[in-house]
């Protein structure tokens, strides 16, 4: 079927303002939105710029606004979006070009919550064992692929540049609730201020936007409780 793509385009070096450009592509209903974008780039307009890498929902590079919702282009089928698809870059970040946004701030916030295991105990001979129950405690937040769909759907993050955003808190949650980790105090110190979890107003946009179906708002609430009680 013919699918019409309305794509928001912007080249800061040439265009005065962003504008929508239309393309028509022949696609099947089980094709993905990403297939349409590839088709446009390869056969119709080589200047259309977007990120994609693994194309299978794991690398997190093709998050974009599809018909007003943040989704991964590689996980969204044409039959879910219909014959007219409106595509815009993620909101809240500066546009580098077309659908490519500048994620410096996003990854700076990510790094600020110490997103790695901290444990200075001498390593045991084989591995740091953990019970299945203890592992399950943070299972949901291990699924994050850092696509930024949650953070760029969050009204608090739109309004407050210094808010760490849901993705960074999800990453912090993954280690705060890991029994093998020893940096809870440092992490909570980073999350306890006005730029951390307390800027969350539980709008639930993050949970709705997550392409990995992480219960983001719930994870943030658990970090809030940990900050309040001084530990997980």
């Amino acid at each position: 079927m013919r699918v019409r793509f309305d794509i928001k385009r912007y080249d800061p070096e040439k265009d005065e303002a962003p504008y929508f450009q239309n393309y028509e592509v022949e696609l099947g209903e089980t094709d993905r939105v990403l297939d349409g974008l590839n088709e446009i780039r390869w056969r119709q307009d080589g200047t259309l710029t977007f990120r994609r890498s693994c194309e299978h929902g794991i690398c997190g590079s093709d998050a974009m606004r599809i018909n007003g919702r943040n989704r991964l282009a590689c996980k969204t089928l044409i039959r879910e979006v219909g014959r007219r698809v409106r595509i815009e870059p993620l909101l809240g970040f500066p546009v580098v070009r077309d659908l490519v946004v500048d994620q410096q701030r996003f990854f700076q916030d990510y790094r600020s919550v110490l997103p790695f295991l901290v444990n200075d105990d001498p390593p045991p001979p084989r591995e740091r064992l953990q019970s299945p129950e203890a592992r399950r405690r943070f299972d949901d937040t291990t699924k994050c692929i850092l696509c930024a769909a949650c953070t760029t759907a969050c009204p608090s993050a739109w309004g407050n540049d210094s808010f760490l955003g849901p993705a960074a808190i999800v990453q912090a949650h993954r280690f705060i609730f890991d029994t093998r980790d020893h940096a809870t105090v440092e992490r909570l110190a980073r999350l306890a201020g006005r730029c951390g979890v307390w800027a969350c107003r539980t709008a639930y946009n993050c949970t709705m936007a997550c392409p990995r179906e992480i219960q983001v708002t719930r994870a943030i609430a658990e970090v809030k409780r940990a900050a309040l009680l001084g530990g997980p």
């Binding site: 200075d120 201020g193 900050a227 309040l228």
Partner: peptide, 16 residues
């Protein structure tokens, strides 16, 4: 414990 860049000064006001 390894050392990390210091956390930004936050205080507990927002939590309370």
């Amino acid at each position: 414990m390894a050392s990390y860049p210091p956390a930004p000064p936050t205080g507990r006001f927002e939590m309370y």
